[in-house]
Design a binder for these strands. Structure first.
Length: 139
DNA sequence: GCCAACGTTGGC
DNA sequence: GCCAACGTTGGC
């Protein structure tokens, strides 16, 4: 299984809204960046990801799961843009802030720290385990 | 609200 | 195919 990180501005789509979307989940629409799209194309059903609030909060607040493989983004007329569906899995008992991530040498190479612009990022097994530990979850 | 970093566009 | 100009993201 692969791990990922999804960024969202809580003003446009928050973790609370994601949780309210329930088991079926929702389309992760709006990505208009090739790297981010390619990451979504590479996802498998059941892959897990961190849900990150950008701008407001700047912290990882929950865990999501890929519930549908990449398909055309219904918010775009251009078939170039695709997205997966995501459903909320669990809360971070203790949200992991960007400041926390930056302060941890083990996460120095994490895309969240090293390439802040990318909205859908791969996460390594080591980073996954470390962030879960920091957030108060068992790995 | 500013601006650095990055991606994309378009003229040549 | 290079690169300057422009737009967007997102941390501060």
């Amino acid at each position: 299984m692969a791990y990922w990180l999804f960024k969202s501005e809580p003003d446009s789509w928050s973790w609370d809204q994601q949780k309210k979307a329930g088991e079926a989940g929702t389309e992760w629409t709006g990505v208009r960046n090739y790297q981010a799209r390619n990451n979504m194309r590479a996802m498998q059903l059941g892959d897990r990801g961190f849900f990150y609030h950008s701008n407001e909060g700047k912290e990882i607040v929950g865990i999501v799961e890929v519930s549908k493989l990449a398909h055309p983004d219904s918010s775009s007329d251009n078939p170039t843009w695709e997205c997966v569906d995501l459903r909320a899995v669990e809360d971070m008992p203790k949200p992991v802030t960007l400041v926390d991530a930056k302060a941890n040498p083990k996460l120095a190479k994490m895309a969240l720290v090293a390439n802040s612009r990318l909205s859908v990022q791969p996460v390594t097994d080591e980073e996954w385990a470390e962030v879960r530990r920091m957030g108060g979850l068992k790995s």
